[in-house]
Design a protein around this nucleic acid. Sequence first.
DNA 1: GCGTAGATAAACAATT
DNA 2: CAATTGTTTATCTACG
Length: 428
Amino acid sequence: MGPTMPPSKKAQSPSSGASASQGMSPLYRQGDAATAASEAEAADLSLSLSASFSKAEDEELTSLSWLHESTDLLNSFSHSGLRSVSPLQDPDDDPLLGDAHSAYDLAAGANRKPPYSFSCLIFMAIEDAPNKRLPVKDIYGWILEHFPYFASAPTGWKNSVRHNLSLNKCFKKVDKDRSQSIGKGSLWSIDPEYRHNLIQALKKTPYHPYSPSLTTPSTSPPTIPPPLWSGSPLFRKNGGVLLQVPRGVIQNGARVRSQALFPVIRPLPVSPVGSRTSAIRLVNFATVALERQDSPSRYSPPPCSEDLQDDHTYSTAKSPSRLCSSQVAAPSSPLDDDDIIRRSLGGAGALAGSSLPWTKSRARGISDTLPLKKRRAATVEKPPESDDEEMKEAAGSLLHLAGVRACLNNITNRTAKGQKEQKEALRN
DNA sequence: GCGTAGATAAACAATT
DNA sequence: CAATTGTTTATCTACG
């Protein structure tokens, strides 16, 4: 059996003759006469978005600047009346349209599993704390607050959080002030030594200007636009076919409201209108974001959530070989990954070992027989200073875009999952 | 096929 | 004593 995507959609490539307008992004065309922007406006907005992304990349703008520009453009975009020529354009075929969820819901993110690894979530949680340290319980709370998926998720995720805290060297227990009783357990903080790795991981997040997904040189034809979440297995295995949005994907998303977590980050100025075209616009924005590497030589499947794994969960960096193979695909990063790794290691020759010591258990040497707990107890230290604006911006951007990202990711995940299940069913 | 990374489950100890 | 927290091991999946 085929994928969940109806043949009509699967076969449709927004850029393969579907473009109704010349000289503008093939993804867009004029919508209803009553609401549509002119083609010139459409082209202008499309170009502006692309320019914004390019600018962010070329000028190494901070993610904050990039976010501001992009959200401004998004705001304009959401009022432009543009409609998609992607498969989403067909209301009869598009379950999302039938649900007519609000654009705000879409922007806020679905109540689905976020595409971030636990280490990333923990990192954001801790960095969002005033003192840059949190007890486990508050880490739970932060995750729950910002990713409602976990409220109804199997309880194992808390175990995973604790597991990650224990195993990931990026996280360190902080001496608990006896005077301030926080109950059971310790406070957890980010180990400054490995902080850069987490930052790097954030930088590699989709939608971040430095994301390799947005900068990787192309080996694929540029004529096929990426799907909503083009790093998805479905995308990779489906030849880059634009995905449709499954029904209910963006339900309950409005609970995720990450604004004001980082005061310097402005909320996405998306009108909480309930029209389906608004939702489409947001989807299109994301699609444009992914398509910004529209020059033929630069298009390639952006990473999926797994790509975020490069630098965080158990290990916040890879072995040199892995760095070469995958992280080299981030040419626009202000620092190459080796530099970042070297910096994070303090240039102390830490790379001399056979493996990078990111992990707390896996990377330990055979001779390192002391129980982790005791070794760690000896190294518990005061929390790091948190004057790293770079990280704050990166984390803020990631946080802020989390909603859209999570939604898009889940859209694809669901579709991909459905495909997988169908494949398996077919096999049996 | 192999190695690595991450997610998840589980067992268990320590702590409150 | 129960609940929570922290550690460790094992297993599975995905990916390069």
